[in-house]
Design a binder for these strands. Structure first.
Lengths: 210, 210
DNA sequence: GAAGTCATGTCAGCTTCTGACATCGGAGGT
DNA sequence: ACCTCCGATGTCAGAAGCTGACATGACTTC
């Protein structure tokens, strides 16, 4: 494998985070990041397709985790519950990185460029989820909508998790968001019987996989 | 107002679309676009913050339409129905531009840069919708979720509208998407009574505004 | 017709990103 | 030990996107 100093990729990521914190994202050049990592600009672009990617390289792992969780869920489980369970399964991994997320998220929110990148990562995640659902026999348009609903739940849950001073874990917020989504869509049309229930945060419906 | 040849902005948009069709997005430079419009590169960047924006300048109008439709909806209407009605209200405007959308959408889907921009426009739309819902007294987290659900519905509906060989109007697809979303979330947990209905695409629940 | 205003042009420069080619340092074979 | 190969990194040149500062030209207004 690699000779030279090891972990070039991580060194670049660390250097980037440091510099973004020190001077802000747009007053940091790729050349500076590379220099701090003891590398050259050209090498940076061998590891990351562009400057933004240095903050998003973990997204493929996330995608894999979710896709697997969806594929492995019990056959009878309803698609929306499968997705919610898959999101809950991310909880431990997120818990480890709460501190990192707390630094990273404000940075992303402050820069449209980075917001865009985050959004396309989520869109890619949605596609992967939809694909995985179709593997379970869910029809295409439904799979797409469930995946989008899953993203909506995740966004809502993640946002609250980051801000949560009580430090509830992500899984908790996922359950809350799903319950809220159910309340929201529980109007008429499908089951014209029961008018919105009053209970605020019902117990979740299913267990987490993995 | 402006002297010189009028409609610089539209000339730039038209030139851009032409060139993107002829050579593709990334083999078209801003300089070329400006030249075809009879202007200079510098002027292009006075009208559009970056190269991508030339394809997205109408998004603010869209946002305004939706925000107003939400604000003007009847008091008693459930938030999700308010949003769906607002989306249905866009139908006529979209119908006029079906041909344009048919050229533009494949272009966007083929280029990650443009996908990103589209996604952030939708995110901005979601924020605006949530804000407008809060103006109706909807609680913050609920407003955010309803807005995200609205975006999910819109994406689903728009995608099908673009591909629809039968040329149903957008409003129709919005109703279908909302109905599907209701089926999806209609599991247990909120109303543990009725097991998933079998009907595939139920009639819509509410009327459209405008 | 002088002054002012606003859209546009000109120019210089930075940053991001890429292709082509050179180099360096270890792995493995002999 | 030596040679050869290969993969990670460096070097260089350059295109394209984007910006600030300032100049210019056209049309309005008084």
């Amino acid at each position: 494998m690699g000779r030279w100093e090891p972990n070039a990729l991580e060194r670049l990521q660390d250097a980037a985070m440091q510099l973004f914190q020190e001077r802000g994202y747009d007053r940091t050049t790729v050349e500076e990041i590379a220099a701090r990592a003891g590398l050259t600009e050209r090498t940076f672009f061998r590891y990351f397709a562009d400057k933004r990617e240095v903050l998003f390289s973990r997204s493929k792992e996330l995608e894999a985790l979710i896709v697997n969780a969806i594929a492995d869920a019990p056959k009878e489980m309803a698609p929306i519950d499968v997705v919610a369970a898959a999101l809950e399964a991310l909880s431990p991994g997120f818990e480890e990185r709460r501190a990192h997320a707390a630094k990273r998220q404000p940075l992303i929110l402050a820069h449209a460029e980075l917001r865009e990148r985050e959004l396309i990562k989520l869109a890619s995640l949605a596609s992967a989820m939809a694909e995985s659902l179709r593997g379970r026999g869910v029809e295409k348009t439904v799979a797409n909508l469930v995946a989008e609903a899953g993203i909506a739940i995740f966004k809502s849950a993640f946002e609250r998790w980051v801000e949560d001073t009580k430090k509830h874990e992500l899984a908790h917020h996922v359950r809350v968001a799903l319950a809220e989504l159910r309340l929201i869509t529980a109007g008429a049309s499908v089951a014209p019987s029961s008018p919105l229930p009053t209970r605020k945060v019902p117990r979740r419906s299913r267990s987490t996989s993995r």
